[in-house]
């Protein structure tokens, strides 16, 4: 399942999650961004003009 391509950078899922020891920083960054986007889209879907 996409194993061939994944191995370009990562040996497996656990390596992908670990991010070479920087997992907390990398996933923290992407998580905060996803949260910000999620909140903004959610507020707009409810028809709110202001946060």
């Amino acid at each position: 399942m996409g194993q061939e391509r994944d191995t370009v950078n990562w040996g497996g899922v656990s390596e992908f999650i670990a991010m070479g020891g920087y997992g907390a920083f990398v996933w923290g960054s992407y998580g905060v961004t996803a949260l910000c986007i999620g909140v903004e889209v959610w507020l707009l879907a409810r028809g709110k003009a202001n946060p």
Binding site: M19, G20, G21, F25, V26
Partner: peptide
């Protein structure tokens, strides 16, 4: 290392 991947956002 991998920490640079933060720059994509």
């Amino acid at each position: 290392g991998e920490s640079y991947r933060i720059i994509f956002i």
